[in-house]
Amino acid sequence: MSRITAEARVLRLEDVAPDDGLRAVSEGRGDVPARGVERAAANDARRVLGLANISLAFGGVTALRDVSLDVAEGEIRAIIGPNGAGKSSLLNVVSGLYQPDRGQIRFGEHAFRRVPTAKLAAHGVARTFQNLALFKGLSVFDNVLMGLAHRVSAGFLRQIVGSPHARRIDAENRAAVEEVVSFLHLSDVRERIAGTLPYGLQKRVELARALVARPRLLLLDEPFAGVTLSEKQELSEHVRNARDRFGTTILLIEHDIGLVMGLSDRVAVLDYGRKIADGTPDQVRADQTVIDAYLGVAHEDETELAT
């Protein structure tokens, strides 16, 4: 109760429209934090990621239409939808691979028209890829270590000479890798060449690499695609454990609805580029629009959603 009134007071004191910051940004000042953003952040301290009215079209094909979405700190947030619904486009907008035609992306208190991909890691965002982006020729350990590649490292000469500073950084990095590797039960395979592992394990290595830098927000691109049923269960356990242990906020897009419903705190559903539903798994499961989108007409024996 008290928190709501506090927020209301902030709003009243500001006497500026809350989306003032948004307009400033959409006037094209790329990655400069917008005016009014600090105040907006005060409104929504627990929001890690906010998408506001994102639209994206490729020529005549509309991939995303006016999609808004927010991701609160520490939650597991899923985006589901049929093929071609715009899930991947949305993820690519969040990670800066696509620039939306309209709308704004906000990480914590920084607002962007287009997300600067190279600085993503610095903003505490990590991602995995649907078809994996592992170094298949390097060991598991080295793969995970590369998850820290973006960090400021000791100078080149210092590395060669092995100065105390370089050694300390090195030791810290190695400790971080060891922790994540054992946390995800990869210790047995830490020296194996990543490309020789089963697909499900490779996915776990990629998860480890994304987690090692302790991101605030972790983007998972179809994490369960192409893995076996038992691997799916394991992997979803690991995702949940990662959230519980490191407090990482997780945004995932996924096909496997049954799994997502069990794993996520909130689920948004996309269809033809529009958001047609957003809520807890139970709300989404009961939503008639969602059922129609997935199944056309809902037959009794086809209620995959209800599992």
Partner: peptide, 13 residues
């Protein structure tokens, strides 16, 4: 890492 996979290298920044 770059020698192994350029895309992955870009992906980790």
């Amino acid at each position: 890492a770059v020698a192994d996979d350029q895309f992955a290298a870009l992906a980790v920044g």
